[in-house]
Amino acid sequence: MEFFRYLGANTRESFTKLGRGSYFLIGMLAGISSVLVRPHLILKQMHSVGVLSFLIIFISGLFVGMVLGLQGFYILSRFGAEETLGVMVAASLVRELGPVVSALLFAGRAGSALTAEIGLMKATEQLSGMEMMAIDPIKRIISPRFLAGFLSMPLLAALFSAVGIMGGQIVGCGLLGVDDGAYWSQMNAAIDFQKDIINGVIKSLVFGFITTWIALFEGYDAVPTAEGVSRATTRTVVNSAFSILGLDFILTALMFGDN
């Protein structure tokens, strides 16, 4: 009996939260038009959300690419197909690892920071104060951050993939002796712009949307105390990770499922 009560209360709580989240999303999207006429607001946020995530994305991309180069080489060389290392590295990065890993890193680096920032603004009455100054905090604070996150994500994913491909080349061609020309030309021939690149970009747009939305909403919905903000930050990272991985499966099935 206790269990069902718990289950019911939890389900109800989840649904009301989903409702609040959707309401928040509508407000946030409606605020975008007023942000577009003030692009400096977006640029400022793109700096703190995007540019400051640059280093972690760069370094992680490099190492992931290097590991792919190593692992790919050992497997492919068993079949004498090490010339196709470039294809393997590029396809894994552009289709999957680029969007997914960079989104996970983005949630940890930028998403948590957004939640903490908004949550603290709420706890210190800055949002309330803005409302009393007749300034809508959703329009002024939330929408620019949303746009910045949404637009930064594909750029960061592209950076991740590009650096990863170089990392694969450093290991594959530099250390393991795969032919440089074959690495690039095989990749060039096999990677399809529509199927691989565009689909990867779509994925990262979806992940950028969902991660930034979760991060901003958790901050805005946080209990305005130190503990509340810390819990909200944790929830951002956990829920973003689940959403990214779950959506990735669905998107992959839709995009690449028919062959």
Binding site: T124, E125, Q126, S128, G129, M132, M133, A134
Partner: peptide, 19 residues
Amino acid sequence: LYTLRKRMGMLFQSGALLT
């Protein structure tokens, strides 16, 4: 309401300055 609020100043206990 927003038009009215422009004419109502409020001083929060914490100041609520934008940090």
